[in-house]
């Protein structure tokens, strides 16, 4: 069941861009959002985002004025990875981003697995116009160990 959308989107991609059947990594199509992050990984991250993040941060990642911070054009998302992972591990409150205050509470997302945390952070860092390196399970593990 879970694999179906991934396979479907791969099919769509290949039919649309007339890819070779070998390896898509070598010649990435221009509209692919980022290099080095596979569509499957992004799809997995998107599923986690939709279930756990979307209602506050919104489908476009733009957040909500004065309440829920945007995930676009912010150093919190694009910068230091341990700090970003820490937001999922610890939650966050009382934040000012680009001169705007955000009042809502971000609850810790510790019900997510380390794999889900890595997936969703990779998705967020490579969606809504963002482009940054993937977050690995190893990095999530390391951040969690450092917290203890």
């Amino acid at each position: 069941m879970k694999k179906l959308p991934v396979i479907l989107s791969l099919l769509l991609l290949s039919s649309g861009a007339a890819f070779a059947q070998k390896k898509p990594a070598a010649k990435a199509p221009a509209k692919k959002p980022t290099a080095g992050v596979s569509p499957a990984l992004l799809a997995a991250g998107k599923a986690v985002y939709t279930q756990n993040c979307l209602s506050c941060h919104q489908a476009d990642g733009g957040g909500v004025d004065g309440m829920n911070p945007p995930l676009t054009k912010t150093d919190y998302v694009l910068g230091d990875k341990p700090r970003l992972i820490g937001v999922l591990l610890n939650g966050l409150k009382g934040l000012e981003i680009n001169g705007e205050e955000y009042r809502s509470v971000m609850p810790a997302q510790t019900h997510l697995t380390e794999q889900q945390m890595a997936d969703v952070l990779t998705y967020v860092r490579n969606s809504f116009g963002n482009k940054a390196s993937a977050v690995t399970v190893g990095e999530v593990k390391a951040a969690r160990a450092a917290k203890k």
Partner: peptide, 13 residues
């Protein structure tokens, strides 16, 4: 608070 959970807005709290 949203709903006076032990942990505000946390899933299942």
């Amino acid at each position: 608070s949203n709903s006076c959970q032990e942990k505000d807005r946390e899933k299942g709290s």
